[in-house]
């Protein structure tokens, strides 16, 4: 695609970022969830996975899905600097999505965590993978975090004993900012983060061809129409 000068000037200068190496986790059901980083060209498919949840009020899916949709669109259209997105898939089906970006070399900005398939701690695992990316692969010193649902507050602020830092302003605005420092990450990592690498070739191949969920437990009666 030819990008004209005007468009080019609207795009952020991107910082080279190490890739998140894919891993897999055995969930409570025995199913294997592959966690991997998506490429920018995969964003349109992920948007389709997010879209149905934008009107689900329960558990604040509406705000999380709507904001995640716009953040990913920003990533797709080169309007957000240094963004990334990790997805979890089981047998190729997308079951969860997390995203964030680098504020600068040392500080990460956690955006959203969304579980499409509930009841298996998928959100908790994807959040941990996101933090693993910031600290263990991007070598950052801290990540700024806010929660938009009580579930998020319980999972992140309380369980990770996040440091309250209301004097800094998280990009999502609203509630006061909390911070996961490198020290807190090292304290909680062993209990919160798991998974194995490398992912077996066959498992990875399936994961690299993500499939949209055909139903959502959050939307009774929803069945995705095949295009």
């Amino acid at each position: 695609m030819i990008v004209d000068k005007m468009e080019q000037s609207l795009r952020p200068v991107e910082t080279p970022m190490a890739e998140y190496p894919a891993k897999y986790i055995t969930l409570a059901t025995g199913e294997k969830m592959v966690v991997r980083q998506i490429k920018r060209e995969e964003v349109p498919l992920i948007l389709e996975a997010v879209k149905p949840l934008m009107t689900v009020e329960k558990d604040f899916y509406d705000i999380v899905a709507s904001r995640m949709y716009s953040e990913l669109l920003g990533y797709l259209r080169y309007r957000v600097k240094d963004e990334y997105c990790l997805i979890g898939t089981i047998d190729g089906v997308i079951v969860g999505i997390v995203n964030g970006r680098l504020l600068d070399e040392k500080v990460g900005m956690s955006y959203h965590t969304m579980t499409l398939r509930q009841g298996l701690r998928i959100g908790a695992q994807l959040f941990a993978a996101k933090m693993e990316y910031h600290f263990d692969f991007l070598n950052q010193e801290e990540v700024w975090i806010v929660a938009e649902s009580p579930n998020g507050f319980r999972r992140w602020m309380i369980e990770y004993e996040l440091e309250s830092r209301p004097e800094v302003w998280h990009e999502l605005g609203g509630v006061p900012t909390y911070v996961l420092t490198k020290a807190l990450w090292e304290k909680h990592k062993a209990a919160k983060c798991t998974g194995r690498r490398p992912v077996k070739e066959e498992l990875l191949k399936t994961a690299e061809n993500p499939i949209l969920p055909s139903t959502y437990a959050q939307i009774p009666g929803f069945v995705r129409c095949e295009k």
Partner: peptide, 22 residues
């Protein structure tokens, strides 16, 4: 309340069990 069936191996024996079944 819950209609998910855990796998005994996954919650008791697998090396990820300490995290998925904390």
């Amino acid at each position: 309340h819950i209609h998910v069936v855990p796998s005994l191996y996954a919650i008791a024996d697998d090396e990820d069990a300490h995290v998925i079944n904390p």
